[in-house]
Protein backbone atom coordinates (compact mmCIF):
# COMPACT_ATOMS: atom_id res chain seq x y z
CA UNK A 1 0.00 0.00 0.00
CA UNK A 2 1.40 3.44 -0.88
CA UNK A 3 2.62 5.69 1.92
CA UNK A 4 1.53 9.31 1.70
CA UNK A 5 1.90 12.44 3.76
CA UNK A 6 -1.34 14.01 5.02
CA UNK A 7 -0.89 16.90 2.55
CA UNK A 8 -0.62 14.38 -0.29
CA UNK A 9 -3.67 12.50 0.88
CA UNK A 10 -5.67 15.73 0.99
CA UNK A 11 -4.42 16.60 -2.49
CA UNK A 12 -5.46 13.19 -3.82
CA UNK A 13 -8.88 13.65 -2.31
CA UNK A 14 -9.36 17.05 -3.96
CA UNK A 15 -7.91 15.83 -7.24
CA UNK A 16 -10.20 12.81 -7.39
CA UNK A 17 -13.28 14.80 -6.45
CA UNK A 18 -12.51 17.52 -9.00
CA UNK A 19 -12.01 14.87 -11.67
CA UNK A 20 -15.29 13.21 -10.70
CA UNK A 21 -17.46 16.34 -10.48
CA UNK A 22 -16.80 19.51 -12.42
CA UNK A 23 -18.88 21.54 -9.96
CA UNK A 24 -16.08 21.09 -7.39
CA UNK A 25 -13.57 23.94 -7.23
CA UNK A 26 -10.87 25.08 -4.80
CA UNK A 27 -10.63 28.70 -3.70
CA UNK A 28 -8.33 30.45 -1.27
CA UNK A 29 -5.15 32.40 -0.75
CA UNK A 30 -2.16 30.97 -2.64
CA UNK A 31 -3.95 27.77 -3.65
CA UNK A 32 -3.08 28.16 -7.34
CA UNK A 33 0.19 29.54 -8.60
CA UNK A 34 1.92 29.24 -5.23
CA UNK A 35 0.48 25.70 -4.98
CA UNK A 36 -0.74 26.13 -1.44
CA UNK A 37 0.91 27.65 1.63
CA UNK A 38 1.33 24.04 2.83
CA UNK A 39 1.34 22.52 -0.66
CA UNK A 40 -1.97 20.75 -0.23
CA UNK A 41 -3.12 21.99 -3.65
CA UNK A 42 0.15 21.35 -5.49
CA UNK A 43 -0.42 20.48 -9.12
CA UNK A 44 -4.14 21.22 -9.15
CA UNK A 45 -3.86 24.52 -11.05
CA UNK A 46 -1.88 22.86 -13.84
CA UNK A 47 -4.47 20.12 -14.10
CA UNK A 48 -7.73 22.07 -13.69
CA UNK A 49 -6.91 25.66 -14.63
CA UNK A 50 -7.71 29.03 -13.14
CA UNK A 51 -11.46 28.61 -13.28
CA UNK A 52 -11.40 25.74 -10.78
CA UNK A 53 -8.31 26.55 -8.73
CA UNK A 54 -8.99 30.12 -7.75
CA UNK A 55 -6.38 32.34 -6.11
CA UNK A 56 -7.95 35.05 -4.01
CA UNK A 57 -6.78 38.31 -2.55
CA UNK A 58 -6.52 38.42 1.25
CA UNK A 59 -10.25 38.70 1.86
CA UNK A 60 -11.53 35.77 3.92
CA UNK A 61 -15.01 37.22 4.52
CA UNK A 62 -15.23 37.85 0.80
CA UNK A 63 -14.17 34.47 -0.52
CA UNK A 64 -15.89 32.47 2.24
CA UNK A 65 -19.09 34.29 1.30
CA UNK A 66 -18.47 33.73 -2.40
CA UNK A 67 -18.23 30.05 -1.58
CA UNK A 68 -21.60 30.15 0.19
CA UNK A 69 -23.21 31.98 -2.72
CA UNK A 70 -21.69 29.61 -5.27
CA UNK A 71 -22.86 26.58 -3.29
CA UNK A 72 -26.40 27.99 -3.11
CA UNK A 73 -26.28 28.31 -6.89
CA UNK A 74 -25.28 24.68 -7.39
CA UNK A 75 -21.48 24.51 -7.21
CA UNK A 76 -19.46 22.56 -4.63
CA UNK A 77 -16.72 24.83 -3.31
CA UNK A 78 -13.72 23.82 -1.26
CA UNK A 79 -12.66 26.98 0.57
CA UNK A 80 -9.12 26.81 1.93
CA UNK A 81 -8.21 28.98 4.89
CA UNK A 82 -4.45 29.35 5.10
CA UNK A 83 -5.11 28.74 8.76
CA UNK A 84 -8.37 28.66 10.67
CA UNK A 85 -7.05 31.62 12.63
CA UNK A 86 -7.95 33.68 9.57
CA UNK A 87 -11.45 32.21 9.49
CA UNK A 88 -12.23 34.51 12.41
CA UNK A 89 -12.74 37.40 9.98
CA UNK A 90 -15.05 35.19 7.91
CA UNK A 91 -17.01 33.96 10.91
CA UNK A 92 -20.18 35.84 9.97
CA UNK A 93 -20.25 34.10 6.59
CA UNK A 94 -19.98 30.68 8.19
CA UNK A 95 -22.25 31.32 11.17
CA UNK A 96 -24.98 33.41 9.57
CA UNK A 97 -24.92 32.29 5.97
CA UNK A 98 -23.43 28.80 5.52
CA UNK A 99 -24.86 27.28 8.69
CA UNK A 100 -28.28 28.91 8.58
CA UNK A 101 -29.17 29.02 4.90
CA UNK A 102 -31.02 25.74 4.58
CA UNK A 103 -33.09 26.31 7.69
CA UNK A 104 -33.71 29.98 6.98
CA UNK A 105 -34.99 29.28 3.50
CA UNK A 106 -37.32 26.48 4.53
CA UNK A 107 -35.12 24.01 2.65
CA UNK A 108 -35.09 25.95 -0.63
CA UNK A 109 -31.30 26.21 -0.62
CA UNK A 110 -28.54 23.82 0.38
CA UNK A 111 -24.92 24.79 0.98
CA UNK A 112 -22.75 21.82 -0.01
CA UNK A 113 -19.26 23.13 0.68
CA UNK A 114 -16.08 22.53 2.65
CA UNK A 115 -14.10 25.05 4.68
CA UNK A 116 -10.72 23.44 5.23
CA UNK A 117 -7.33 24.35 6.64
CA UNK A 118 -5.01 23.91 9.60
CA UNK A 119 -6.35 24.33 13.12
CA UNK A 120 -4.79 24.67 16.60
CA UNK A 121 -1.26 25.63 17.58
CA UNK A 122 1.61 24.96 15.19
CA UNK A 123 4.96 26.01 16.61
CA UNK A 124 5.98 29.38 18.08
CA UNK A 125 3.44 31.57 16.28
CA UNK A 126 2.10 33.29 19.40
CA UNK A 127 -1.48 33.88 20.37
CA UNK A 128 -3.20 35.05 17.17
CA UNK A 129 -1.89 32.11 15.13
CA UNK A 130 -2.20 29.31 17.69
CA UNK A 131 -5.91 28.92 18.23
CA UNK A 132 -8.10 25.85 18.33
CA UNK A 133 -11.44 26.58 16.70
CA UNK A 134 -13.45 23.41 17.29
CA UNK A 135 -15.30 24.91 20.23
CA UNK A 136 -16.47 27.79 18.06
CA UNK A 137 -17.49 25.76 15.03
CA UNK A 138 -19.06 22.94 17.02
CA UNK A 139 -21.00 25.50 19.01
CA UNK A 140 -23.88 26.05 16.59
CA UNK A 141 -26.16 23.88 14.44
CA UNK A 142 -26.14 23.66 10.66
CA UNK A 143 -22.58 22.47 10.09
CA UNK A 144 -20.57 19.29 10.40
CA UNK A 145 -17.08 19.42 11.88
CA UNK A 146 -14.29 17.01 11.00
CA UNK A 147 -10.74 16.79 12.36
CA UNK A 148 -8.17 14.46 10.81
CA UNK A 149 -4.95 12.97 12.15
CA UNK A 150 -3.80 10.39 9.58
CA UNK A 151 -3.37 10.36 5.80
CA UNK A 152 -5.93 7.56 5.48
CA UNK A 153 -8.56 9.52 7.39
CA UNK A 154 -7.63 12.77 5.66
CA UNK A 155 -8.34 11.40 2.22
CA UNK A 156 -11.43 9.36 3.01
CA UNK A 157 -13.05 12.07 5.08
CA UNK A 158 -12.24 14.97 2.74
CA UNK A 159 -13.84 13.07 -0.13
CA UNK A 160 -16.94 12.52 2.01
CA UNK A 161 -16.94 16.17 3.04
CA UNK A 162 -16.88 17.31 -0.60
CA UNK A 163 -19.83 15.03 -1.36
CA UNK A 164 -21.80 16.03 1.73
CA UNK A 165 -24.84 18.21 1.08
CA UNK A 166 -24.10 20.36 4.15
CA UNK A 167 -21.33 22.82 5.01
CA UNK A 168 -18.41 20.91 6.52
CA UNK A 169 -15.67 22.48 8.64
CA UNK A 170 -12.56 20.39 8.02
CA UNK A 171 -9.64 20.73 10.44
CA UNK A 172 -6.07 19.81 9.55
CA UNK A 173 -2.82 20.78 11.28
CA UNK A 174 0.29 22.66 10.14
CA UNK A 175 2.52 20.39 12.21
CA UNK A 176 0.93 17.23 10.82
CA UNK A 177 0.91 17.82 7.05
CA UNK A 178 4.13 15.78 6.81
CA UNK A 179 2.81 12.87 8.88
CA UNK A 180 3.04 9.70 6.78
CA UNK A 181 0.75 6.73 6.63
CA UNK A 182 -0.65 4.09 4.36
CA UNK A 183 -3.38 5.09 1.95
CA UNK A 184 -4.95 2.48 -0.31
CA UNK A 185 -4.92 3.16 -4.01
CA UNK A 186 -8.20 4.10 -5.58
CA UNK A 187 -11.56 5.12 -4.37
CA UNK A 188 -12.66 4.90 -0.75
CA UNK A 189 -14.81 7.03 1.54
CA UNK A 190 -14.92 7.33 5.31
CA UNK A 191 -18.38 8.30 6.56
CA UNK A 192 -18.64 11.56 8.48
CA UNK A 193 -19.83 10.86 12.02
CA UNK A 194 -17.80 7.74 12.75
CA UNK A 195 -15.01 7.64 15.31
CA UNK A 196 -12.07 5.26 14.96
CA UNK A 197 -10.29 3.20 17.56
CA UNK A 198 -6.67 4.09 16.92
CA UNK A 199 -5.42 1.73 19.60
CA UNK A 200 -7.60 -0.93 21.24
CA UNK A 201 -7.40 -1.43 24.98
CA UNK A 202 -9.65 -2.41 27.85
CA UNK A 203 -8.61 -0.56 30.99
CA UNK A 204 -8.82 3.19 30.21
CA UNK A 205 -10.45 5.08 27.35
CA UNK A 206 -8.59 8.09 25.95
CA UNK A 207 -10.85 10.21 23.74
CA UNK A 208 -9.06 12.57 21.41
CA UNK A 209 -8.86 14.08 17.91
CA UNK A 210 -6.57 16.04 15.62
CA UNK A 211 -3.18 16.86 17.08
CA UNK A 212 -4.25 15.05 20.22
CA UNK A 213 -4.12 11.67 18.45
CA UNK A 214 -0.32 11.20 18.25
CA UNK A 215 0.07 12.64 21.74
CA UNK A 216 -2.49 10.23 23.14
CA UNK A 217 -0.91 7.27 21.34
CA UNK A 218 2.44 8.12 22.92
CA UNK A 219 0.78 8.37 26.31
CA UNK A 220 -0.89 4.99 25.74
CA UNK A 221 2.51 3.51 25.03
CA UNK A 222 3.82 4.91 28.33
CA UNK A 223 0.78 3.45 30.05
CA UNK A 224 1.41 0.06 28.48
CA UNK A 225 4.99 0.14 29.78
CA UNK A 226 3.48 0.70 33.20
CA UNK A 227 0.95 -2.10 32.94
CA UNK A 228 -2.15 -0.12 31.90
CA UNK A 229 -3.97 -1.05 28.71
CA UNK A 230 -5.43 2.15 27.25
CA UNK A 231 -7.81 2.43 24.30
CA UNK A 232 -7.37 5.53 22.12
CA UNK A 233 -10.46 6.74 20.29
CA UNK A 234 -10.01 9.31 17.54
CA UNK A 235 -13.36 11.05 17.21
CA UNK A 236 -12.53 12.21 13.63
CA UNK A 237 -15.94 13.93 13.47
CA UNK A 238 -16.59 16.45 16.24
CA UNK A 239 -20.11 17.35 15.11
CA UNK A 240 -22.13 15.17 15.06
CA UNK A 241 -20.40 13.12 17.77
CA UNK A 242 -20.17 9.35 17.43
CA UNK A 243 -21.90 8.76 20.74
CA UNK A 244 -22.00 4.98 20.38
CA UNK A 245 -18.24 4.73 19.92
CA UNK A 246 -17.64 6.86 23.03
CA UNK A 247 -20.19 5.15 25.24
CA UNK A 248 -19.32 1.60 24.17
CA UNK A 249 -15.68 2.15 25.06
CA UNK A 250 -16.48 3.82 28.38
CA UNK A 251 -18.82 0.97 29.33
CA UNK A 252 -15.97 -1.42 28.62
CA UNK A 253 -13.16 0.40 30.44
CA UNK A 254 -15.12 2.42 33.04
CA UNK A 255 -12.35 5.03 33.06
CA UNK A 256 -11.94 8.03 30.77
CA UNK A 257 -9.42 10.68 29.86
CA UNK A 258 -10.51 13.33 27.37
CA UNK A 259 -7.37 14.71 25.78
CA UNK A 260 -7.10 17.27 23.02
CA UNK A 261 -5.21 20.26 21.70
CA UNK A 262 -7.73 22.96 22.47
CA UNK A 263 -8.95 25.16 25.28
CA UNK A 264 -10.82 23.72 28.25
CA UNK A 265 -13.66 26.18 28.74
CA UNK A 266 -17.05 25.20 27.36
CA UNK A 267 -15.71 23.30 24.43
CA UNK A 268 -15.84 20.02 22.59
CA UNK A 269 -14.00 18.19 25.37
CA UNK A 270 -16.54 19.50 27.85
CA UNK A 271 -19.33 18.23 25.61
CA UNK A 272 -17.77 14.75 25.56
CA UNK A 273 -17.35 14.76 29.35
CA UNK A 274 -20.96 15.91 29.74
CA UNK A 275 -22.19 13.14 27.43
CA UNK A 276 -20.35 10.53 29.48
CA UNK A 277 -21.65 11.95 32.77
CA UNK A 278 -25.24 11.92 31.54
CA UNK A 279 -25.25 8.63 29.65
CA UNK A 280 -23.00 6.32 31.66
CA UNK A 281 -22.24 7.88 35.03
CA UNK A 282 -22.85 4.59 36.82
CA UNK A 283 -20.36 2.82 34.55
CA UNK A 284 -17.56 5.10 35.72
CA UNK A 285 -15.03 3.90 38.27
CA UNK A 286 -13.33 7.30 38.43
CA UNK A 287 -14.18 10.91 37.60
CA UNK A 288 -13.55 11.87 33.96
CA UNK A 289 -10.17 13.54 33.53
CA UNK A 290 -9.49 16.22 30.97
CA UNK A 291 -6.05 17.13 29.57
CA UNK A 292 -5.94 20.01 27.13
CA UNK A 293 -4.50 23.48 26.56
CA UNK A 294 -4.08 25.65 29.61
CA UNK A 295 -6.72 28.36 29.71
CA UNK A 296 -4.35 31.07 28.51
CA UNK A 297 -3.42 32.94 25.35
CA UNK A 298 -0.41 31.37 23.68
CA UNK A 299 3.08 32.86 23.88
CA UNK A 300 5.78 32.89 21.25
CA UNK A 301 8.54 31.71 23.62
CA UNK A 302 9.06 27.99 23.12
CA UNK A 303 9.05 27.03 26.77
CA UNK A 304 5.86 29.01 27.47
CA UNK A 305 4.15 27.54 24.43
CA UNK A 306 5.08 23.95 25.24
CA UNK A 307 3.86 24.30 28.82
CA UNK A 308 0.39 25.21 27.56
CA UNK A 309 0.09 22.16 25.26
CA UNK A 310 -0.75 18.73 26.68
CA UNK A 311 2.27 16.41 26.72
CA UNK A 312 2.22 12.61 26.51
CA UNK A 313 3.48 12.58 30.09
CA UNK A 314 0.53 14.66 31.31
CA UNK A 315 -1.90 12.38 29.52
CA UNK A 316 -0.18 9.32 30.91
CA UNK A 317 -0.50 10.81 34.41
CA UNK A 318 -4.22 11.32 33.83
CA UNK A 319 -4.52 7.70 32.63
CA UNK A 320 -2.74 6.50 35.76
CA UNK A 321 -4.97 8.69 37.92
CA UNK A 322 -8.26 7.33 36.60
CA UNK A 323 -6.81 3.80 36.88
CA UNK A 324 -5.84 4.51 40.52
CA UNK A 325 -2.34 3.47 39.53
CA UNK A 326 0.65 4.90 41.33
CA UNK A 327 3.01 6.85 39.10
Amino acid sequence: MPTLQIREALREAMDEEMARDDRVFVMGEEVGYYEGAYKCTQGLLAKYGEQRVVDTPIAEAGFAGVGVGAAMAGLRPIIEFMTFNFSAVAFDQILNNAAKMRHLTGGQFTVPMVFRGPNAAAHMLSSTHSQAFESFYCGFPGVKVVSVATPYDAKGLLKSAVRDENPVIFFESEVMYGVKGEVPEGEYLIPIGEADIKRPGDQVTVITWGQGVPTALEAAKMAEENGIDAEVIDLRTLRPLDKDAILNSVRKTNRVVVSYHGWPYGGTGAEVADLIARECFYDLDAPVERVCYEDINFSYAENLEQLAIPSPKQIYEAIAKVAYHSL
Binding site: G62, A64, V66, V68, G69, A70, M72, G74, N96, N97
Partner: peptide, 20 residues
Amino acid sequence: AIVGGHLPVAAGHAFASKYT
Protein backbone atom coordinates in the same frame (compact mmCIF):
# COMPACT_ATOMS: atom_id res chain seq x y z
CA ALA B 1 -30.39 40.62 8.02
CA ILE B 2 -26.69 41.07 8.81
CA VAL B 3 -25.75 44.38 7.20
CA GLY B 4 -23.30 43.87 4.32
CA GLY B 5 -23.03 40.13 4.91
CA HIS B 6 -24.95 39.36 1.73
CA LEU B 7 -22.56 41.05 -0.68
CA PRO B 8 -20.01 38.23 -0.76
CA VAL B 9 -22.86 35.72 -1.11
CA ALA B 10 -24.33 37.66 -4.03
CA ALA B 11 -20.87 37.77 -5.60
CA GLY B 12 -20.84 33.99 -5.15
CA HIS B 13 -24.08 33.64 -7.11
CA ALA B 14 -22.51 35.70 -9.88
CA PHE B 15 -19.33 33.61 -9.64
CA ALA B 16 -21.47 30.52 -10.21
CA SER B 17 -23.12 32.18 -13.22
CA LYS B 18 -19.75 32.88 -14.78
CA TYR B 19 -18.50 29.39 -13.87
CA THR B 20 -21.46 27.62 -15.44
